[in-house]
């Protein structure tokens, strides 16, 4: 019986220690339903599986895309499956708050592309493909893929996400996101892979939100 009581004390101590830990650990985002996003996009919103990184993304871009999901304009299969339901009850003020919050987080490069294709990807990104009438990405997305206003930050996004987005424009999804459907249509499969690979390695450059 003494052992049983000792064991029970051990268990109680464990729980007490845990509660202290819980009480002491600061939750960074009590006011916003951030965890409704990060359970799929990663604890630090750095991306998780095929869910893209939100950290460091442009505020205006996040807001616009949330509206696109709500309007079902962004209609690729994963958006339909996950995001349409996720934003169905999201009010504009909360959407704006989430956009500001995630844009404030320092992003980390996914670095999951094929390093051997990075040089080719950088050439396409910087110069376009003149023979195929592909404009240089740098013109809109900036020299480090940092984006501007509602043009998204591409630098460091995951290879899987970037590749899928470019492919899906070419498959007819989300055609309202002009001019990207036209751009994607002009890229070959190899060029898409090279671009996605290169961008996945681009490091964060802080130029504001």
């Amino acid at each position: 019986m003494q052992r049983a009581r000792r064991d029970q004390r051990t268990g109680s101590g464990l729980v007490a220690a845990l509660l202290l830990l819980i009480a002491g650990a600061a939750s960074a985002q009590d006011a916003l339903p951030v965890r409704n996003c990060t359970w799929c996009h990663g604890s630090s919103a750095q991306g998780f599986m095929f869910a893209p990184r939100l950290a460091g993304q442009r505020t205006a871009y996040i807001e616009r895309e949330l509206a696109s999901f709500a309007a079902h304009a962004r209609d690729n299969p994963l958006s339909q499956k996950y995001m349409w339901g996720a934003v169905a009850r999201l009010d504009p003020a909360t959407a704006q708050g989430l956009a500001v919050y995630f844009s404030s987080l320092a992003p980390e490069a996914a670095a999951d592309g094929q390093s051997g294709l990075a040089a080719t990807g950088k050439a396409i990104y910087d110069n376009g493909v003149a023979v195929d009438n592909v404009a240089a990405c740098i013109a809109c997305h900036g020299p480090n893929g940092e984006g501007v206003r509602d043009i998204p930050r591409l630098g460091g996004l995951s290879y899987v996400y970037l590749k899928r987005r470019l492919e899906q424009w070419n498959q007819g999804y989300h055609q309202s996101a002009k001019p990207m459907p036209l751009v994607a249509k002009s890229l070959s499969a190899n060029e898409v892979e090279a671009l996605a690979s290169y961008l996945s390695f681009v490091q964060f450059v802080d130029v504001g939100r």
């Binding site: 819980i22 939750s27 960074a28 990663g42 604890s43 630090s44």
Partner: peptide
């Protein structure tokens, strides 16, 4: 269960009981 998140430097923590 009770669960929460925390961040310590580069360490993301999802913890609970």
């Amino acid at each position: 269960r009770y669960a929460d998140t925390a961040k310590f430097g580069k360490l993301d923590l999802l913890f609970g009981a």
